[in-house]
Amino acid sequence: MEDKLTKEEVLHVATLARVKLTDEEIEKYRVELKQLLNEVEKINDVEGYDKERMIAPWSDNTTLREDKSSDMLDPKEVIKNAPKHSGNYIEVPVVIGESEGA
C-alpha cells in the first residue's frame, strides 16, 4: 500500500472542506491523512453486522413542534456578529445566481 496520498487527492479533500493549503501543508497532509485513512479502512474487515442504522443513540419518537411562532431576533441582532453588513442585510462578495439546493 502506498503510504502517501497524491497531491491531487489532498487538494480534492481540501476543496471539499474549503481549506486553502500551502505547498508545505500539502506535503504534510499527504502522509497524515493517509495514516488516518488507513485506520478507517479497517471498517471493511468488520463482517456480520446488522443493517439497521443508528442515527442517534436515543430513540424516542421525535416530538414535533406546534406551529406557533416565538423567539425571533431584531434585525439589529442579526447583523451584530456579522463582520460585513449593509443596512439590515449581511454582505458577502458578489455571487452569481442561486445555489443548487432549492
Binding site: 411562532s69 425571533m72 431576533l73 439590515n88 442585510y89
Partner: peptide
C-alpha cells in the same frame, strides 16, 4: 419557530 412570511423587512423574520 420564526414566522414564515413574505415581503417583510430584511432579516426581521429570523432567529
Amino acid at each position: 419557530p420564526s414566522v414564515n412570511g413574505y415581503g417583510q423587512m430584511a432579516n426581521s423574520l429570523t432567529n
